[in-house]
Nucleic acid binder design. Structure first.
Lengths: 142, 142
DNA sequence: ATAGTTGCAAAAGTTTTGCATTGTA
DNA sequence: TACAATGCAAAACTTTTGCAACTAT
């Protein structure tokens, strides 16, 4: 019953689903492969849906949304809010931050290990910090 | 033609509109008063719309949206993205950060002057930093 | 066999748009 | 008077939901 110490980054799609206690259905497996095999990256539901179609996977957009949220709830993905127009999901679930290119919508990870934030007030009484997000917004290159 | 050194926080609604070169129409003035007279706070389009109605101002939701964006473009407001469900606008346009209560949707400002972030990589070549946002997400108090 | 999933279409929610009307300068 | 802004409703989008059909265990 012990989880091996294999870092989650290297677990195959099937093993990840098993670990998350999610039934390895055809669609979940296919989406998990698209999400986790290429290494860390960011997707929107729309993008993942297109990738699935391009890969010949039969899946509906609604199922992509549902699956992304199931994966997020299971801790396999992280939601990144940078843009009210659409939701990004990040396959990198370690503590880290983001560059966000406002022009293209592209996201780039910033390793959280080297970032040190000082001078923040403590959380208001009774509240617990669930996450600290740093987003560096980048705009056009002139 | 010189702008006085009055901090923008204290300019009356009418003066703000004049400064921003926005015609002081009835609706803009009314919304500007609701936005800028109470001091720093955060609104959504929906909330501002309700406040306007409560104040007896005749304005449509579409105009509230349009006006919020005009004010933002003019630099009178700042958009705060914390939540893909809806867009917040902040009347505090100085550099600062936010606590975000995930449960209630409430935002609280964190003065940016005392916050020091170290260890961030420099912006990718050719990109310019338009803003650094720090969002501290707070969840339920147990 | 059965309980959990999927697909689809339709609903829900926020935000934007188009155009006739109105109001400011 | 001219031109910009408004109001409204409808459109556009993203995201969620409900339920019959399906599928992994």
């Amino acid at each position: 019953m012990e989880t091996q110490s294999t870092p989650p980054h290297r677990l195959a799609a099937l093993a990840r689903l098993r670990d998350a206690k999610l039934r390895p259905t055809k669609q979940r497996l296919a989406l998990a492969k698209l999400l986790f095999e290429p290494g860390d990256h960011h997707v929107t539901a729309e993008i993942l849906f297109e990738q699935a179609q391009a890969a010949g996977v039969k899946v509906s957009l609604a199922t992509v949304y549902n699956t992304l949220h199931q994966f997020t709830t299971a801790g396999l993905l992280r939601e990144v809010v940078v843009n009210s127009a659409c939701t990004y999901f990040d396959t990198n679930i370690t503590g880290h931050h983001h560059f966000f290119f406002e022009d293209s919508g592209e996201l780039i990870d910033i390793d959280g290990a080297n970032v040190d934030i000082r001078g923040l007030p403590k959380a208001p009484d009774g509240a617990r910090i669930s996450r600290v997000d740093v987003i560096i917004r980048l705009s056009g290159q002139e």
